[in-house]
Design a protein around this nucleic acid. Structure first.
Lengths: 241, 241
DNA sequence: GCAAAAGTGTTGTGTCTACACCCATGT
DNA sequence: ACATGGGTGTAGACACAACACTTTTGC
């Protein structure tokens, strides 16, 4: 009745916008199994730590932990044959690095576009896919953009980040309004100088909050609207003449 | 450098509407540790199985697996001190049982309201909370109601299920329209006889699909609307005179 | 002045919530 | 007839997407 030993590892799909594309941090395996293939950073769980502590510790070897703006658990990958040798269960994480953080990377480590992965080790390609999907979903109903963008940015720079992450066009106009309406952006007061071709200088913004916040909890079937006494005006906003 | 052994278990928070309330299936521990406290069903991962296979197997001991309409992974609970004795990591699942399934339960097992849990074992209360939260969120942007409701139901019966699960009032009118617009409901053609007080007989409905489907993927920043050639009429529906 | 880029005004559309009203049945 | 519960019609309110237009710069 004794089960064979099961080892436990944590793996992180660390995503960030680099060079206008959504990329993931991978390192090239030097040794078998899967030598020459690209793998997610991570490693064995140590004695005193829970999985989140572990993944943060292991990432510190690849990229300065302070550069990681957000970490969240994805799911467990537990196919008995997912790796050769003794059975290994993996808890996968999504990590996000803002584009102004440029950590010095080990020689075997590089940013690869998530939509053009090299040959990957084990089941790591599926983990990257689920990280990308999670990111795309959360960009639409949380403030998670803060974890991709630099500390200060113009709206059009932010727009490029969203385009790269979502994979479809995004209007700068609507992006600004959606984020502003939710009080996620605030102007710094500074402006960025225009390029050599001229143009109006762009105002700089920052995210008001750099921790995850759910801004659109309900798609439908919202709880009944209780009249909100904190809002001074009546139910209507402006009455046109 | 060798890590101490880590054991792996799966735990399931099986939720269902019973007696008008959202409840979770718990069994009362007979032995220490935590004897007399109520625990989630689950157990050790066996050799050849992944975590989802394992949780389905373990649930078969408590409730007929065919009665479980939906199973999904929640997250890993890995605090080193979450259980006494050798370290145990748990992968937690959400399971849902429709209210017309009434599995014969073992003597030590009972349905408990999720908002009035008895003394629970280990960290299981937190797992129940995250299961409840996941269910509430997904009811709003997926067709997950199918996993709580019986095979056929009236709108007002369905409404009571949503009220119990969400914890706030839901209008039958709007519930029907929201689900109908998304093509999640279809009429069976049958009607349910009215109660002894009279009233119009209610039409019976069923869910068109009994597997999980995301119906509201984007809160904002949707991909640009490509003109849909499959839809015959122009962009507008009806023109008023 | 002109091109380029940023940002605001405005309009159209969808769809959600709320509520009034009509429908079918038992007593 | 009338009470009871089921179901539809309709109106109001947002909020989003799209696009025209104004503003501010470099050349």
């Amino acid at each position: 009745m004794t089960s064979p030993p099961v080892l436990h590892e944590v793996l992180a799909a660390v995503l960030g916008i680099r060079d206008g594309r959504l990329r993931v941090l991978l390192w090239e395996r030097a040794l078998d199994p899967d030598a020459g293939r690209w793998a997610l950073p991570g490693g064995r769980l140590a004695a005193g730590e829970d999985v989140e502590t572990s993944v943060r510790r292991q990432l510190a070897e690849k990229v300065d932990v302070r550069e990681i703006a957000h970490v969240e658990q994805l799911s467990v990958f537990s196919d008995p044959d997912r790796t050769p040798g003794p059975r290994m269960i993996a808890t996968a994480f999504l990590g996000l690095v803002p584009s102004d953080a440029d950590p010095a990377l080990p020689a075997d480590t590089r940013w690869h576009p998530v939509d053009a992965l090299p040959a990957t080790a084990f089941d790591h390609a599926g983990i990257v896919d689920s990280a990308r999907d999670r990111l795309r979903a959360k960009l639409s109903y949380t403030n998670l953009g803060f974890a991709l963008a630099p500390a200060e940015f113009t709206i059009s720079a932010l727009r490029e980040h969203y385009v790269a992450a979502l994979g479809h066009s995004v209007s700068a106009t609507n992006l600004q309004r959606v984020l502003t309406r939710r009080d996620l952006l605030e102007p710094t007061g500074e402006t960025a100088p225009p390029g050599r071709a001229g143009g109006r200088p762009a105002a700089l913004f920052r995210f008001t909050d750099r921790t995850l916040r759910v801004t659109d909890a309900f798609a439908v079937l919202r709880p009944p609207a209780r009249p909100d006494p904190s809002r001074p005006g009546g139910s209507t906003g402006v009455v046109l003449p």
